[in-house]
Design a binder for these strands. Structure first.
Lengths: 137, 137
DNA sequence: GTACATGCAAAGGGTTTGCAAACGG
DNA sequence: CCGTTTGCAAACCCTTTGCATGTAC
């Protein structure tokens, strides 16, 4: 028996009605090692089950995002990318390949909080992306 | 005699052909205390001179951006905002009012560089935005 | 003069939505 | 069953572009 993915389980726990389409989309995200955009999720989903429309992909991803089981990223490419909610991390984007590298730096986290506080704000969210070129030496 | 704004002067120095429209758009940005989006630049520009189309605003802003006299920002609102190129700073966006507060923190700058280097990359660009709510105490 | 800039409206890319039909709990 | 979800296509928003006309240098 092939169990549910963690994402599917999470969705069920949250009481979301799980249609075949939503299950497939949840699995695609679960299986993704990258940070796929909507078009990519759509492509991968229809490979598994062609009865899925792009509109449903948009609607499901938004639903999952609102349920906090999924995080949407906007890397300034004009389209959104998604990944499963998990441990917090930042992204470094390789400007030559588009590859996305995850990293986490505790000091950076602390400093963001501090800067916001010093400006009189509670930090609600943030965005930190580094764009770099692989060092060739 | 009303002198040229710094931005107009910069554009002329770079050899850009300065039409009336471009001058008005440059002045609008120069006078802006905020980080106006294209629509706002268009509105302010047409108040000064109605002979300006939105297409020209887009084209001029892009031209100025390519000439590095202007910086484009994407704060994830689905539309671009612009500001004059100047001293480097980051932005904190008030999630309730949309107000943009500028800040600079040397430690953060150093750490971004370091993180990229440690991952084997040369830092080419970055994006750091804090989204906060004004502390009410 | 002539290459370049403009206005207009149409096209473009990503995303959302109205509606009737299909479906999950 | 009945409210929800879906597919489809049209609509949307921001931005870009083709073309004929106008203009800075």
């Amino acid at each position: 028996m092939t169990g549910l993915t963690k994402l599917e389980q999470l969705c069920e726990d949250k009481g979301l009605k799980m249609t075949d389409q939503r299950r497939v989309i949840a699995r695609v995200i679960s299986d993704a090692e990258d940070h796929p955009d909507v078009e990519t999720v759509y492509r991968r989903a229809t490979e598994i089950d062609p009865r899925i429309s792009i509109a449903t992909v948009y609607r499901s991803l938004k639903l999952f995002e609102d349920a906090n089981v999924l995080v949407r990223h906007d890397f300034g490419e004009g389209r959104a990318r998604y990944e499963e909610t998990g441990h917090h991390h930042e992204h470094l984007i390789d400007i030559e390949t588009g590859e996305v590298i995850e990293f986490f730096n505790q000091e950076l986290e602390i400093m963001k909080e501090r800067v916001a506080r010093e400006l009189g704000y509670d930090l609600i969210d943030h965005r930190l992306e580094l764009y770099g070129r692989k060092r060739k030496d």
